[in-house]
Design a protein around this nucleic acid. Structure first.
Lengths: 222, 222
DNA sequence: TGAAAAATCATGCTTTTATAGGATTGATCC
DNA sequence: GGATCAATCCTATAAAAGCATGATTTTTCA
């Protein structure tokens, strides 16, 4: 359900002129509530809407003016990473700020690659969040990740870019299908499946299925 | 049952007599803030403390009286599942309520097994949360999971009980080691490693490594 | 419209897993 | 003190995955 404080092209609430209009996209009401609560008493900041999935988020952006969209990395329908890309394509003037549980280099680079202006881990404090808004609104970038909890040795430097087919194969592998079964499912030959599989191993910089699935699971790809 | 509202002879904070004293353990300030905010205006409920990891949580419980502890499943140091067990061992009078992002049968049964009185998914609304507190404080159980997003066909009914050796092998498999490499690492024969591996497949009710790792990753085992 | 990327398929070989069917030694628990 | 379970080891075979080295055909897009 979309929470519309502002809707239909014009803004009903002009209590704070010049305030930064913020849309929060997260499927956890607690996080929504927490952010709203933290931003409620902040000067020059106004949460104009919230959404719990990508569809709602896009719908809201179509009908409302938003300066900064906070995007959760893990959403029920599509990943925040993909949503970020969509948002920047359809609403290039909207700045995006990634919200994530994880402090991982891989996520960050991928989000930035997709046009995000910043990256906030959910364990950020109020100061960080306000600082991020200020920076981003001013056209800058913000990220407070430290990468202290070093990414495991098996982790790739970035989230590999996967093709449509590779994603499909990856999902089917994770579901426990063997190459012959995947081939049957996708109406392609076993050797083709195997090619995609090898490409996945190369892109993830691993040497077997176990590592592949572990990484992909950790990245929320499956 | 200990009457915790009247213990120690006197109560330092009598602002709200009979109020349920709550400790929230979650490593995300946003979630903490969200919950506090949601509970702030609720009658008969008082958030007496928050902790962002298991150590802090245990320390707080040693020095304070708490009726219900909200435990996040994913904590930085140990898993909420293990923390739940510890809490029930050391402070049996404290009721625990699991907080999780996931709507998974496996987590629930594991938490209940470890003494939790309830299970709340983070996408719960205010009503659910208050209802949970009421139920649990009255000595009952609460859980609002629906398992609607049906657990994948490959999911086991419960988190399988793994032996020490099986856990070790599982972790090494996930790290990408092959049977010969694991054997070398653990100073046992390849056939033994293979036995443990087969037992893992049987316990998780899967037929290959990919499914195994996906499940184990989803359950936070690796 | 041409280059680049993706998807398709192939052969041959090696290594690893999966599956089946065992057996033996300790430890733990009623 | 017998039962149970964990951990160890074994043989043997089939299936699958991993690795190398290709090639052809679509698609995409600048």
């Amino acid at each position: 359900m979309i929470d519309t404080n502002a809707s239909n092209g014009f803004n009903l609430y002009k209590k704070e002129l010049m305030s930064v209009r913020i849309l929060i996209v997260d499927d956890h009401p607690l996080v929504l509530e927490g952010l709203k609560s933290l931003l409620a008493d902040a000067e020059g900041v106004q949460v104009v809407g919230t959404a719990t999935n990508a569809i709602e988020a896009i719908a809201f952006l179509k009908n409302n003016e938003v300066d900064i969209a906070f995007l959760d990395i893990n959403l029920p329908d599509i990943s925040g990473i993909d949503l970020c890309k969509k948002v920047k394509e359809q609403f290039p003037e909207v700045k995006t700020l990634a919200l994530s549980t994880f402090n991982e280099r891989a996520y960050v680079s991928r989000m930035i690659q997709n046009g995000a202006s910043g990256y906030l881990i959910k364990s950020s404090g109020k100061e960080d969040i306000l600082e991020a808004i200020t920076q981003v609104q001013a056209g800058g970038y913000f990220m407070n990740v430290q990468f202290d909890q070093v990414t495991p040795a098996t982790a790739p430097k970035t989230v590999p870019f996967l093709t449509r087919r590779e994603k499909e194969v990856l999902v089917l592998i994770a579901e426990g299908l063997t190459n012959p079964q995947i081939a049957e499912q996708l109406f392609i030959s076993v050797t083709t499946v195997n090619s995609h599989r090898q490409n996945l191993l190369i892109k993830f910089e691993v040497s077997n299925t176990a590592s592949l699935i572990k990484l992909a699971a950790g990245l929320g790809l499956i």
